[in-house]
Amino acid sequence: MTANQLMIDVSGVEKTFTLHNQGGASFGVLDSASLQVRAGECVVLHGQSGAGKSTFLKALYANYTVDAGEIRLRDGEQMVEITQALPRRIIALRRQALGYVSQFLRVIPRVSTLEVVMQPLLDLGVDTALCEAKAKDLLQRLNVPERLWSLAPGTFSGGEQQRVNIARGFIVDYPILLLDEPTASLDAANRKVVVELICEAKARGAALVGIFHDEDVREAVADRLVDIRAI
């Protein structure tokens, strides 16, 4: 990654939700949204609840479709236009170049915490011992007690699950990382760890877009605050 390189280039994105089974009710959420994010930069989206922050972030991950506009994300030398890309292209992009940390952990039941965290790095073909070392390091930093590592996270508390999810999101050094309220149910000590992880990602040249409701986190990580209604 070259410093200052354009990583995310969004232009003219429009998104309307139509609920066919509820009388065809229709909501316009995004209207010609545009945003550019460069390597090493962390952009924080803000705006009221329901303004479309999460929708925008999900569109960046190709989790939501858009009705118009272009979303171009960097994968090595290429910019990939994800609104038109084939599923397998998006899967390849997500595997190596595009990470997403959601509020909720969604995994196969009965798989151990350590394996849940390692999986994205293992999928890249990285040696198991290295994956394990990195997973343990992250779990330790995020204060997930070692006695929980061999257990499936399904029965953990909300905050513990969220920290497992963060560890999983940071195990690969993604060039682009999207963060959807990763600190929502964390205490101050753990929020601080997440801030450190974000700053480290910025330092290695990652481009980040996030939603944070805690002001302290926002202050600590944001290079730019962007109002979702203004983009």
Partner: peptide, 15 residues
Amino acid sequence: MNTTADLLTPTREWQ
């Protein structure tokens, strides 16, 4: 710690 980029040979298997 190594960065992921060091550990990987870039895959372009979708092409």
